[in-house]
């Protein structure tokens, strides 16, 4: 554990708490992408199968369970609970059909694992989750773009999620310098870089709007 990784994890936790606060305070899921939440749930469930096979630490196991539970709860809220359910507008959240995200990532993961000779289902699903995570934020970014004016807490949610990814890049730099037995995984680095790059545009408008104290409005 290093400071960047811990700060990244905490930023991730904060983003989820902000999202829950956002849903509860406005009593609506307008501006929130259910698709992104569902993609994140697929990511967590496929990546954290090692909960059953490998014990890293209490912290690690606790966080994994917390991510799965909180994301499941958020999806349940938007899908089945009033008033979120009736206010959720699926037509605003139409970009990127789940299967068009899942299928290419599954194919790529299978290919990557065949090349590396990692043939256990847990390894393949772990690699799949690395690729899918990079795409998971895309529907949310499109929902923001559709409404253009980003509600405060929704903006903070995406900001903390992006900060988490940025801090993980610093974590990999740190680990490759200071951990003797750290093995580079270029697939993790490349999809992590792609994922972080997706946030850059949002970050720019977020920081500018905070600096000038105005509302966060995205350009058309």
């Amino acid at each position: 554990m290093n400071i960047f990784r811990f700060a990244g994890d905490m930023s991730h936790v904060v983003s989820i708490l902000v999202l829950l606060l956002r849903l509860r305070s406005s009593k609506s899921a307008v501006g929130i992408s259910l698709k992104t939440q569902e993609l994140f749930l697929i990511v967590f469930v496929t990546r954290y199968l090692d909960l059953f096979t490998t014990f890293y630490s209490l912290y690690n196991s606790f966080m994994k369970v917390a991510y799965i539970a909180s994301t499941t709860y958020i999806i349940w809220m938007i899908r089945f609970q009033e008033p979120y359910k009736s206010k959720y507008d699926a037509s605003q959240d139409s970009f990127l059909h789940i299967k068009f995200a899942v299928a290419p990532c599954a194919g790529l993961a299978l290919f990557a694992c065949l090349v590396k000779g990692e043939l256990s289902p847990i390894d393949i699903l772990w690699t799949f989750s690395i690729f899918l995570e990079a795409l998971a934020i895309v529907p949310q970014l499109f929902v923001l773009q559709r409404y253009r004016e980003v509600e405060n807490l929704t903006g903070h949610y995406v900001f903390f999620l992006g900060a988490y990814r940025g801090l993980y890049i610093l974590n990999w730099v740190y680990r490759s310098y200071y951990e003797q037995f750290y093995r580079h995984n270029w697939l993790v680095y490349v999809s992590g870089a792609v994922q972080t790059a997706l946030y850059v545009d949002f970050f720019y408008y977020y920081v500018v709007s905070k600096y000038y104290g105005g509302k966060l409005t995205l350009p058309t």
């Binding site: 990784r5 090692d50 966080m63 991510y67 993980y168 037995f181 093995r183 580079h184 995984n185």
Partner: peptide
Amino acid sequence: ADADEAKDEL
């Protein structure tokens, strides 16, 4: 402890 390719990360 040795780490296996970031698999101990969240």
